[in-house]
Write a protein that binds this DNA or RNA. Sequence first.
RNA 1: UGAGGCAUAGCGCAGUUUGGUAGCGCGCUUGGUUAGGGACCAAGAGGUCGUGGGUUCAAGUCCCGUUGCCUCAACCA
Length: 475
Amino acid sequence: MAKEQFVEQIADIEKDFPQWYTDVVLKTKLVDYGPVKGTMVIRPYGYAVWELIQKNLDEMFKAEGVENAYFPLLIPMSFLTKEAEHVEGFAPEVAVVTHAGGEQLAEPLVVRPTSETVIGHMYSKWVQSYRDLPLLINQWCNVMRWEKTTRPFLRTSEFLWQEGHTVHASAQEAEEETQKMLGVYKTFAENCLAIPVVTGKKTEKEKFAGAIATYGMEAMMKDGKSLQAGTSHYLGQNFSKAFDIQFLDKDSTQKYAYTTSWGVSTRLIGAIIMTHGDQRGLVFPPKVAPIQTIIVPIAAKKGGVNEACAELEAKLKNVGIRVKTDYTDNSPGWKFNEWEMKGVPVRVEIGPRDLEQGKMMLFRRDTLEKISVSLENAVEEITALLATIQKDMLAAALQRREERIVYANSVEELLKGVETGNFVKAGWCEDRACEEQIKAQTAATSRVYAEGETAETCVCCGKKAKHMVIFARAY
RNA sequence: UGAGGCAUAGCGCAGUUUGGUAGCGCGCUUGGUUAGGGACCAAGAGGUCGUGGGUUCAAGUCCCGUUGCCUCAACCA
């Protein structure tokens, strides 16, 4: 009875995905709503996921020679207006500080929606010579964008992210950097988050305000909709000219530098939830699971059980596994459901019956399988199982996506494809009117150019196609 | 910004049609019994019914305003 009530509390993942998502995020205590509309309070369990994302990404950034730094939250309004497209893109969604120290400010300050401007301002002072380049800096921070509607992790007024900003002496080098970081993101998404992504160039309509070119990585959620999980922008000389980032080159002439920026946000946590979650709640890939293994003692009063659990916990901690033992006096069934809902990849059950045989029960969250294995090899078994789960989760998500990539030769086919939760590949003539008509008729947007593929005709107007584009409905 | 819905105990809800003592389930506290898929018994604690005004002898319930949230649409690196 009680269990049925619990299950009813989580909406049906197939029928009611947005509600399922909201329910599972709130019920698993990842976040609360903040007091300001559209803001979220990230609770410890949710924040632990973010810390693991940071840790893993930081390692990859450092391997590429990128260093961390920090720039101010508040940006003079005049900075934002220096790059024409940039201000046009962001002005509608910035929060502005008009008063401080009890007085009205002569010049309003905007709460950063992104930091190209303030970082560009500083880079103009830092960059003097070609010897100062490339300049490769990342910052972890919060940004604010006053979005009209919000959903925890996917779109909130304030969110946490990293933004990398690099400066280069040549266009080619900057373009290569843009691609390189996109590749870092792809590797990270697949290896750490077990989320397969398609990467590629975005159309003019979808590109970042102020960029020459925007590349994105798109992930397919369980309902077939697409989520922009990260972007990498080639900014050309747009920002270096706006903020006067010049350097003296080897040939003794002053040149404007070429810049890039790239970012991923707490939206990645939303991507994990919607890529891997199921009817029982969250499913975390082991590499970013705050708790990788939960030990559940059964009939602990029978003697020896708690001791065996504690011993195993110590052994697992010793090899660096994030492990916790649930010593609460809740019933076993309660604990099983609780930790499944919270997405712990591996559960160990140890009770008197296991101890008699020198065994333990292992449960894997991704496949819901239970196996009994020897306690002697516990550390090896669990280490191997975590690695297997990490690998299998990516494979399962990849298979799910591959089955849902289709081609369309007409807008009708495109509509049918996206309606049933597919990524739809179709030719496009590069005319913005066609792109907008497709959106109006199908509620799908162009996500990225399909890399390495060409098309004959535009799905909309029938003229010669310039690109093969992936269309999808998106979050 | 449009269209619809919701707001009553920590959570989920009933009660509103027809105004008349503030209810239910879960959770929480205490004690006990339990334990391999959300256990059981007993005794408790907990609510100015989102908010402001109005009608009335009497408002959770009727009227007007307002705020917040949810879904869809629009908007959105």
